[in-house]
């Protein structure tokens, strides 16, 4: 399954949170230098998948390989070495709120390299320039708008020139202009720096424009995969429900629950709880 053009491969992954199954036997392949989109409804644990790839969580079964090495089996030291090669853009941006934008971008450089402040300064301004925020270097994260915070976080994420960058819901809650900027940035960074990108999102139209390959997750499984064109042409009812945004369909509108009749007219001892 893994060949030279594969950077990350997820094999027969099974993950439980408590008793709830999040993933049941899924397989994914992330190709080097490509943008891979992982789509699916909210609340199916797309962020969890990124944390699994980053080694912050351990799978209950199956394996995750980064450049051929099994992430769950790495020692702490190996894991930290691997993480220096990957980067993650959190949904909230997760900028360190007690230091300025400049220091945020410089953080990883100061932490992991022995570069002097002059070189760090140059690098930081280059990264900020790339996301169009060079003028905001001295602002504190609390002074940035949501879209700017996400771009600043992006500058921080590319500070160490990673191989892989994972975007967690980069478009959520953005106005159309910010969204357009981010789409352009992801595309540009990916081709300019030869980055491998994973974009987790539920914004269908934006991501279909830039993605090279798409996976759709629902009901703990992968329900569809392929290039954007293949996905659009898919005859799976599930995939079509997701693409068109229909309220009910194979992905049920209702959270799993007992029958409404039982809930309302059930035996009094049981109450509403279980």
């Amino acid at each position: 399954m893994s060949n030279s053009s594969t950077l990350v491969s997820v094999e027969n992954l099974r993950f439980l949170r408590g008793d709830r199954v999040i993933y049941d036997d899924i397989n994914l392949t992330i190709k080097k230098g490509k943008i891979t989109a992982i789509m699916g409804p909210s609340g199916i644990g797309k962020t969890t998948l990124m944390k699994l790839i980053g080694g912050q969580l351990r799978p209950d079964a199956g394996d995750i390989r980064y450049a051929g090495d099994s992430v769950p089996q790495m020692s702490r030291r190996e894991l930290y070495q691997t993480r220096k090669k990957m980067s993650m853009l959190f949904q909230s941006g997760a900028l360190f709120t007690d230091i300025s934008v400049y220091d945020n971008v410089a953080f990883a450089l100061r932490e992991h390299t022995k570069l002097n402040e002059d070189i760090i300064r140059t690098l930081v301004y280059l990264k900020l320039e790339a996301v169009g925020l060079r003028g905001a270097a001295d602002l504190m994260p609390s002074e940035l708008s949501g879209g700017m915070a996400r771009r600043a976080a992006l500058a921080r994420a590319i500070a160490l020139d990673p191989e892989l960058i994972m975007y967690d819901e980069p478009f959520a809650g953005q106005d159309p202009i910010s969204m357009g900027v981010l789409v352009k940035l992801i595309k540009a960074l990916s081709s300019a720096l030869d980055l491998t990108s994973i974009v987790v999102t539920h914004d269908v139209t934006e991501v279909l424009d830039i993605a090279d390959y798409v996976y759709i997750l629902a009901n703990q499984k992968i329900i569809g995969e392929g290039t954007p064109a293949q996905i659009k042409a898919s005859d799976s009812a599930l995939v079509q429900q997701f693409l068109r945004g229909e309220a009910d369909g194979p992905v049920p509108f209702h959270f799993p629950a007992e029958d409404l009749h039982d809930t309302l007219l059930g035996s009094p001892q049981q109450g509403g709880k279980k």
């Binding site: 944390k51 980053g54 912050q56 930290y80 070495q81 993480r83 220096k84 990957m86 980067s87 993650m88 959190f90 949904q91 909230s92 997760a94 900028l95 360190f96 709120t97 953080f107 990883a108 932490e111 992991h112 160490l160």
Partner: peptide
């Protein structure tokens, strides 16, 4: 809550130490 600890970990910085 704002994922700063997670973010540190992903930047290969141990939040326990930092």
């Amino acid at each position: 809550a704002t994922e700063q600890l997670s973010s540190l970990e992903m930047m290969a910085v141990d939040p326990l130490r930092r």
